[in-house]
Design a protein around this nucleic acid. Structure first.
Lengths: 233, 233
DNA sequence: CCCAGCACTGAACAAGTGTTTAGACTATTG
DNA sequence: CAATAGTCTAAACACTTGTTCAGTGCTGGG
């Protein structure tokens, strides 16, 4: 079952196998025996190297976060951009890392939290920078804006399945990028709406009261299955 | 361990317990025994009612999708909006459904796919409608735009943990909504960027070649840990 | 009354779980 | 060479898993 990566330390091979299976099937659904067999190794050796299944998970977390944030020595997290570029450059190779990261970000656990915080910090810095240089308009709430930019940026990782299903092709393929780049940039450049009405209505509704008294539908830009606009209640 | 919902069918009580645990801990990490004990019932009764653990999962899927899309009889999926509003109205009550739905959407499985397709269809209809009525500008690619709107709309469900962690409060609380509504509407109203440069660059890059030859950074609006802009390779 | 049908349970099953133990093999070091 | 250390395995451990089975109690219909 071993892949082309047999020139690695046994320990690394086990870790890589675990990343693949944890990422693909989830932690709970993956047995130590399955990891061992994928790494061409006995189950006992897995625990010999990682003490326990949980230890293996921690090692995987550290490894994946390290890969994502650019291997520590590069102290600035700014390099995460290059990691993502590397990853998206050939999805097939990095899919295990992508899947694993997506799982980290959506499930509870300190590793996912740390990763997200690092990404958020990076996005915040970028917002500050782009606002300062005049590329970006000054948002009314920089940190909230940075937060949503980070979240939206992670959508292709976290909702990868639905995205490629709806697109019909891998979003990260040439065809997928050609299809998605412009629409997203349009949103980020001009917005969606033709006028200010929703924004004005929201401002008014929020000014009128400090409570959650705003579900008259005025600041709800659509009657649609999207929770995001957050106008309910 | 039973909650206030003891006036339900035993079968329904078991299903509800399963939704709670599957949603909170995941399917694989939840044992039939745990479900049984939360429902105050013997493990054997669970399989008596649902044939198997997998059968229980299917029943939960059907139930949650039904709740989300508004209980079938209401054939139009348009009612999903009201379901979400109901859910977000008091998070504490509906958190199990929220968590379960988030898991459905991010993991593989036909139920999540069907749900997503229904939501996407609803969003598409809304886009058409709003464009027709002049509320929304005509996007260059309606279906891609609808797709991303749907995905972004689901972020509060799927990335609930990181969102509320970064916000410091429940996003769905009064304080959370006050914090997030305006920034999001700003994005959807004016966009983020002060000018067209990125959009123009992307158009040029895509026109210049049909291949993925565009990672010069020109159409990459930021140097930041966000994969979405999809400029890599 | 009786009995068929139903909801329900305790106990057990085989299979799979994470983990331990004892030991084999190899290489390095004195 | 002998000893030590490290990598690795087969076998077993105690336990949990999903599921089955035999049987109990109850309820409604003849």
């Amino acid at each position: 079952m071993r892949t082309a990566t047999s020139d690695l330390t046994t320990r690394a091979r086990i870790r890589d196998a675990a990343v693949v299976l944890f990422g693909r099937d989830g932690y709970a659904a993956t047995s130590v025996r399955a990891v061992a067999s994928l790494a061409d190794v006995s189950p006992a050796l897995v625990v010999h190297h990682f003490a326990s299944k949980e230890g293996l998970r921690l090692a995987c977390d550290d490894y994946v976060v390290g890969e994502f944030l650019g291997r520590k020595d590069d102290l600035s997290h700014g390099d995460a951009a290059s990691a993502i570029r590397r990853w998206l450059a050939d999805v097939d190779t990095y899919r295990p890392l992508i899947d694993y990261t997506a799982r980290m970000l959506t499930s509870s656990g300190s590793a996912g939290d740390e990763l997200f915080d690092a990404l958020l910090e990076g996005t915040s810095a970028m917002v500050d920078e782009q606002v300062a240089s005049g590329i970006m308009r000054e948002p009314s709430d920089r940190s909230a804006t940075a937060l949503y930019l980070t979240l939206y940026g992670l959508v292709p990782l976290v909702m990868h399945r639905q995205l490629t299903r709806a697109l019909g092709v891998e979003q990260l393929s040439a065809a997928g990028l050609r299809r998605t780049t412009v629409p997203i940039l349009e949103l980020y450049t001009h917005g969606l709406y033709a006028d200010d009405r929703f924004l004005v209505a929201a401002h008014e509704a929020l000014a009128r009261t400090s409570g959650p008294r705003s579900d008259k539908g005025e600041n709800d830009p659509n009657q649609d299955p999207d929770p995001p606009r957050g106008a309910g209640s």
